[in-house]
């Protein structure tokens, strides 16, 4: 696939190594024009305020609904400040008969943790080879790796399912029904592939590893370090910010994933949060909107908190994906 190949050279070396203000810091010295003509600033403020209000509306509506009674959700005209005020929802949502919050959270955390660990370990190994070992066929292999990013999930979805089922048929034949290698109906199909390298993370880490000076490896080599020792003792400690970005993205992807759990999980007991939210929609109509919004807010919360804690790393990471 030539496309990814052409995309790659277009991407200059990454910026994680040389942190530049992308987010918080005020943009260097003010540009003459923009501050000289206040009318521009006023227009920008009006425009941005409108967009921001619109962007905040869903959050406000969710928060407001999550504090209402069921009757309160069908009140007309609606109130943004709930009355009666029912913070009780945040406890009730843990005792819901169909939406098993604690179970779903535990399931999501297991999948997310194993995905993050697998992605970081396997992707940094592969990225090291692509970035720092000159070997024959490296260019071709790297292009193939990039090209896999473009393959839509449906192309592999059906046969992946088939492969996991095939594995099950055989492990059951050898080891019995409840063997630990069972795939379908367990979390394994969701996290196991992460342990075998994730193309996008490999790309990000490779870009970062390339920016580290070669002298570091040379010095270590003279001291008698093997390739793995260089990777483990020199490169990885220096790559912590890039590893954090990869871990963060892997966590978010696992936390937010809907299609994977939808395809592979069978019992409601195994649902992840993203999949479980659907259990508020009853087959017979009559959604408990107040509790659904409470649960949705709680599902969003960890991601938002994580973002605020890691803002700089996070934004730098996204900027890198765009070829910075």
């Amino acid at each position: 696939m030539p496309d990814a190949a052409r995309l790659a050279p277009a991407l200059p070396p990454p910026a994680i190594a040389r942190p530049k203000p992308v987010w918080q810091e005020p943009a260097a010295p003010p540009r003459a024009r923009s501050s000289a003509i206040p009318i521009d600033a006023v227009l920008f403020h009006v425009g941005l305020l409108c967009v921001c209000l619109a962007f905040l509306l869903p959050f406000v509506w969710m928060l407001s609904t999550s504090l209402k009674t069921l009757e309160g959700t069908s009140e007309y005209p609606p109130r943004f400040v709930p009355h009666p005020f029912q913070p009780q929802n945040y406890l009730d949502v843990f005792r819901h008969s169909r939406f098993r919050f604690a179970t779903y959270t535990r399931n999501t955390l297991i999948v997310a943790f194993l995905t993050v660990a697998g992605t970081v370990v396997s992707s940094s190994l592969a990225a090291y080879a692509f970035a720092r070992i000159p070997f024959r066929g490296r260019g071709v292999l790297f292009v193939i790796m990039l090209a896999t990013i473009m393959i839509p999930f449906p192309v592999t979805m059906v046969s992946l399912f088939r492969i996991f089922r095939w594995m099950d048929v055989h492990t059951i034949a050898w080891l019995g029904r409840d063997n630990p290698l069972r795939m379908l109906g367990t979390f394994k199909p969701l996290w196991l592939p992460a342990w075998f390298g994730q193309a996008f993370s490999i790309f990000l880490l490779r870009q970062f590893f390339m920016t580290l000076p070669n002298e570091l490896s040379e010095a270590a080599r003279i001291d008698g370090c093997g390739e793995f020792a260089i990777f483990w003792r020199i490169i990885l400690p220096l790559a912590r910010p890039a590893l954090a970005v990869v871990a963060l993205f892997a966590f978010m992807a696992a936390w937010n994933d809907f299609l994977g759990p939808l395809v592979y999980l069978q019992l409601p007991d195994q649902y992840t949060l993203a999949l479980g939210l659907q259990s508020f929609q009853s087959q017979h109509g009559g959604t408990e909107w107040h509790l659904l919004m409470t649960a949705s807010l709680l599902v969003c919360l960890p991601v938002i908190v994580l973002f605020f804690l890691t803002q700089r790393t996070f934004i730098q990471g996204i900027a890198t994906t765009g070829g910075k």
């Binding site: 370990v121 396997s122 992707s123 190994l125 592969a126 090291y128 080879a129 692509f130 070992i133 070997f135 490296r138 292999l141 790796m145 592939p193 342990w195 075998f196 390298g197 490999i202 093997g226 390739e227 793995f228 990777f231």
Partner: peptide, 12 residues
């Protein structure tokens, strides 16, 4: 050594 580092990804 490259193949050793790439092994997990290659299998995957």
């Amino acid at each position: 050594s490259a193949l050793a580092f790439l092994a997990p990804w290659l299998i995957g």
